[in-house]
């Protein structure tokens, strides 16, 4: 009886979790299956029909992937995406770590107010800022350039990254800083030797957030960089594979998987930090 009680709730729990996971994954599986199907099959039958005879390999094709990868400009777009995303992840995370440390442990007048202002910036929809910022960028000749978009992504990313890192860094034990001060560590030394190594889980999860946000961004790039092939990121190139009336969408499914590859790799390589990082700062003490 006891045994049954112990086994039963766990199996139910697992069944429910697996069920939810399956439902969650269903659209992605459909996308994956569709990306391997022939255009005329896609038009006539649903993707699930492949499972009626799953080992009939004539119904699958690599043609969509071939078109997407060999298509003019895809390689250039991948590099553009990297050029945009790497600095636009590095700068905000570095700046946010500095700021979070300062807000959490350094004493200066107006610290709380300033922190509130930064956090309050979270509620401003970025679409509202396009016109004024684009004006400033035009004046500085930054529109259509990579430094321009790094600056844009850095400032859009800062409020959330500062907030997340602040919560984590503020939760580090005070004794650490006291003993560091007694040992004669400067502020910079404390930051680089203590705070950074201890915050790796939080930093990793913030890196994932910011990386995926920038990598998947279409609108910000379109406004500040434009759709020129020399600067357009992967998202724009993927969107331009589809005809303006939504034809050729079997290419979209393949392109979606190509553009998902790098974020998935980043996510899986950092995911053990991610779970810890999300919980970071949620419980103090």
């Amino acid at each position: 009886m006891k045994l049954l009680k112990r086994i039963f709730p766990r199996t139910t729990l697992h069944a429910v979790i697996i069920g939810i996971a399956l439902i969650w994954m269903l659209p992605t599986v459909g996308l994956l299956v569709t990306s391997f199907r022939l255009p005329q099959d896609v038009a006539h039958t649903g993707w699930w029909t492949v499972f009626s005879h799953p080992f009939n390999f004539t119904q699958y094709t690599l043609q969509n992937y071939e078109t997407v990868i060999t298509k003019n400009g895809m390689g250039r777009a991948f590099i553009n995406s990297l050029i945009i995303t790497v600095p636009a992840t590095f700068f905000p995370v570095l700046l946010a770590a500095f700021a979070a440390y300062a807000f959490a442990w350094m004493k200066f007048p107006g610290r709380k107010t300033l922190f509130m202002v930064v956090v309050a910036l979270l509620v401003i929809p970025l679409q509202m800022t396009f016109i004024p910022i684009l004006r400033i960028f035009n004046w500085l000749h930054l529109s259509g350039t990579f430094p321009g978009i790094w600056l844009a992504h850095t400032s859009y990313g800062l409020p959330l990254t500062v907030y997340l890192l602040h919560n984590f860094i503020a939760g580090l034990p005070r004794d650490l800083f006291d003993s560091a001060a007694i040992d004669g560590a400067s502020t910079m030394q404390t930051f680089f030797r203590l705070v950074i190594p201890l915050s790796v889980p939080a930093i990793a999860s913030v890196v994932i957030f910011q990386f995926i946000w920038v990598w998947n961004d279409l609108l910000v790039a379109l406004i500040y960089l434009g759709g020129f092939r020399s600067v357009a990121p992967l998202t724009l190139q993927v969107a331009s594979l589809v005809g303006s009336r939504g034809q050729d969408w079997e290419l979209l499914t393949a392109a979606a998987f190509v553009s998902m590859a790098l974020p998935l790799f980043i996510f899986f390589s950092l995911q053990r930090y991610f779970v810890r990082g999300i919980l970071a700062g949620s419980v103090k003490g």
Partner: peptide
């Protein structure tokens, strides 16, 4: 001639760039 493919967001992008002056 440099072609910029903006896609379905064209109305938004045009309105924004006109307002911003470029």
């Amino acid at each position: 001639v440099v072609v910029e493919s903006v896609g379905r967001d064209l109305p938004t992008v045009l309105a924004t760039r006109i307002a911003a002056g470029n």
